[in-house]
Nucleic acid binder design. Sequence first.
DNA 1: CTGAAAGCGCTTACAG
DNA 2: CTGAAAGCGCTTACAG
Lengths: 327, 327
Amino acid sequence: MNISQIAKLAGVSPATVSRYLNDGYVSKEKKAIIKKVIDETGYSPLASAQNLRQRKSSVIGVIVPKISSESISRVVDGISVELKGSGYHLFLGNTNNNVAEELDYLNLFQSNYVDGVILIATELTPKHMKFMKHYPKPLVVVGQYTELVPCVYHNDKGGARAAVSHMLKQGCHRIAFLGVMEEDVSAGFERHNGYREALKACHIKENPALIYQVDFSITDGYRATQELINSGQPFDGLFCATDNIAIGAMNCLRFNNLDIPGNVRIASVGDSIVSKAIQPSLTSVHLYYKTSGEEAAVIMMDILDKHQSVNKQLRLGYELCERESTY
Amino acid sequence: MNISQIAKLAGVSPATVSRYLNDGYVSKEKKAIIKKVIDETGYSPLASAQNLRQRKSSVIGVIVPKISSESISRVVDGISVELKGSGYHLFLGNTNNNVAEELDYLNLFQSNYVDGVILIATELTPKHMKFMKHYPKPLVVVGQYTELVPCVYHNDKGGARAAVSHMLKQGCHRIAFLGVMEEDVSAGFERHNGYREALKACHIKENPALIYQVDFSITDGYRATQELINSGQPFDGLFCATDNIAIGAMNCLRFNNLDIPGNVRIASVGDSIVSKAIQPSLTSVHLYYKTSGEEAAVIMMDILDKHQSVNKQLRLGYELCERESTY
DNA sequence: CTGAAAGCGCTTACAG
DNA sequence: CTGAAAGCGCTTACAG
């Protein structure tokens, strides 16, 4: 069933059916008969033909490092809700934390399938920069700051600072930090920065012996905590870059018979489901992941539909969720 | 940059470039020169033109009730990994637990964008059946059993039975059940069935006063548990259809100063991150979500690439992960 | 092994 | 307000 057949059934030209489907510059009578035919046949125009002709697909490519991550899937949820409201669809590029695959998708989307790309970014390498500088389609970055294209990012530094300040206020004097790779500017560098700023505000110097770099896993949080304990360095607080790291740390503290928050206070970033569910509940910074997805989609829609291609950098706030682990 | 320009630069016809890109029925010399031109220009053929001509997109539509769910996002992860290996891409239809939107996507994909559809199903209504009966493209269902199209589903009954049998073996006599709507055959009906079968094997009759229906949320798990406690019905075990429900239940038990597992043993289904992280850790049934996604994609690839359209029903196993909450 | 030609199903100036 | 015609960028019989 194609547009010509519909046209024949309705006794009009394909052009008229097309107009009916699009701008609607059609007389009442013809409108009525075309509607009838379309309803009866269940005809819907073939997207690939429309795309070819109009050079537009109403599809947005979304590149994610790992879809089965709580924060990422929340961002995607936000994007999808907003896109749907605007009649757009979502093409998912899941890269399994593989930078090469991320670049592959950026490359693929450059000329295919989608009208614009939302990149949920972890690390922005020089290769990413190159793409961003001359990307032929609208590109919006989520989760990292960049001036090259519009972005929506989180106040990682502020959130971390708030969490650590809160721990200091609760009486911590020696707060260790379990961070992630600094190449991830948001989750690595900025959260470390916030930690440092909070210490500085209390005239405490960062002690390198209390700083550990871990990957994003529960097990590595456990490992690092055990190393910290083994090192003999005294500590009464533990700030973790992510909830998962904190979960591993808590398991390790427990295993070593260290009470939370009695012996060690602990806080982290993410406000995940687990952080509220574990015992003791975990003080954590909420970062509005879903909202960031929605905002990114809004910016994309603005660029696409209103040709408003202002290069805006949107920083979202944070909320410190104080729970039992720091009381 | 299109195929004609490439052809001109290479001094051949567009047909030859096309052949180079596809079957490759081209002489060594021309192959070399075409390769050179393509490498230099970075040309890649426009997907929408190919799709229109070949009536094929190499894209699979994946319909999900909620992408920001741990189990669902794991399934999608599995699908995406497998598809990528076969050169397919993923178009995501997120429906926010809205059956109408689910049907909308089934309808949209019928004639557009994708070569096949993987439906991560919750409830299969008569309208779903209608779609499945005459779907014009390959359709694979994940997470629910159906004979109408190929499906990959979980042994929900077996898993539930194993969990409840284990609780009985641990000494429970009065196990309450917090289930979800029975229209969700897998998570609702079958898990309830498994609970019933385990009781029956021990010659225990199901006591309606110990059966509650809740939604999938933590808060509703809490609510139902409080109702159960308020009812005065004695119980020494609590089997929950999902980990989230169990989390809510555990919080409520704790609030009522009931020890886990001392006063009440508790188990559920999902083996989520939380189930391992909470204190006490939660006995839960692992259901191989990621694998189910991979298997569904494999079936889809078989149908599409090998025209093996056997209507197979694949049931995956389960593993009972016994943890502190039942000891 | 190669090229000219037709056609996939649309949309959009253009002329009326 | 409407239709005939051209064309988006590919691929694929067909003829050579």
